[in-house]
């Protein structure tokens, strides 16, 4: 990734963190960015659906049924990368 791409992905991650902290009453420092939010006890499966709706509404990244995997949604970092790649048309 070049500097602009890194900045864009960081902006997406920041937006996701803001949404999760605001919606699920956690501090950013409570979140392990490389672990599943469900495994960390921060959200339940319904929370995951809320995040997908937030992603579609906020970043305009359309999420298909086949996207709903742990590879794409298994951590905050994975979600940010997924959204970035979808927006760029890489996936």
């Amino acid at each position: 990734m070049n500097a602009n791409q890194v900045a864009e992905r960081s902006r997406i991650l920041e937006g996701l963190v803001t949404f999760v902290t605001r919606s699920f009453m956690v501090e950013a420092s409570d979140i392990d960015m490389d672990k599943s939010l469900i495994d960390q006890g921060i959200i339940d499966s319904f929370g995951l659906m809320e995040i997908t709706t937030f992603i579609e509404n906020t970043f305009g990244a359309k999420i298909q049924e086949q996207d709903m995997t742990r590879e794409a949604f298994g951590s905050m970092n994975k979600m940010a990368t997924f959204v970035y790649r979808r927006k760029c048309g890489e996936i």
């Binding site: 469900i38 495994d39 499966s45 319904f46």
Partner: peptide, 23 residues
């Protein structure tokens, strides 16, 4: 009771089931 982003969502059962497997 639910956040505003939970008003409409598609119920992807298999993904949801996998997500709640720990509980």
């Amino acid at each position: 009771q639910i956040p505003a982003n939970g008003i409409v969502y598609r119920n992807h059962y298999r993904f949801l089931a996998e997500s709640r497997e720990a509980s």
